[in-house]
Design a protein around this nucleic acid. Sequence first.
DNA 1: GCGACAG
DNA 2: ATCTTGTCGC
Length: 226
Amino acid sequence: MKIPRPPHNWRIGYRQAVVVQKKLALQVRETSLEVEPRFAAGIDAAYSKDGSKCIAGVVLWDLKTMDDIEHHTAVTEVGFPYIPGLLTFREGQAMLAALRNLKNRPDILLFDGQGIAHPRGIGIASHIGVITGMPSVGCAKSRLVGSFVMPGEKKRSKSPLLYRKERVGTVLRTRDHVKPVFVSIGHLIDLDAAEKLVLDCAIKYRLPEPIRLAHQLVALEKAEGS
DNA sequence: GCGACAG
DNA sequence: ATCTTGTCGC
């Protein structure tokens, strides 16, 4: 599938990365979904044993038949250290490459990380959403920024994630008695639709199936390439 | 100045 | 993320 080239270089310094984020953050849009999504692409990444390469995986999930339509991986050289708030500069390049391998166009992108629940309002889900111009959602396993009260123990219990007096996401319980996930809009979607997508995909486990499968995919790729 | 800190 | 097996709890 056709994916635009990033409007910036991936191998840049910390200072420049922050400048890039501030610029792209102005393009993030919260809107209602055009149509009900049917195909969601789950994206995740892993690293080669020596940590020199980033392995990204994408799984195109059919929300209707609850099936894996197609999946691919892509590998790139890691050219940026892990710095909270700058994760995109470590995995973004590989993720875009993996998305280019898709034959079918997803209705929406689901990321293992934050959307706008980020210091500068542009976590990996929002960043890739802006570059691709596609609707996207962030579903992180832990908090980056913001405060909240722990939601109830039952599935679907939730509480708002607040940051600087603003609502940036939802702490959502996807299964009874399991740690909640942190959902935030990425781009071109609203929080209600983002929450619904995550719940609709979290059928058997805590994480949405597309993300869980993408995680297994890169884990296998990692094992082979060693 | 002291913590917090996606993956 | 990654190093790693069994084990306690719903």
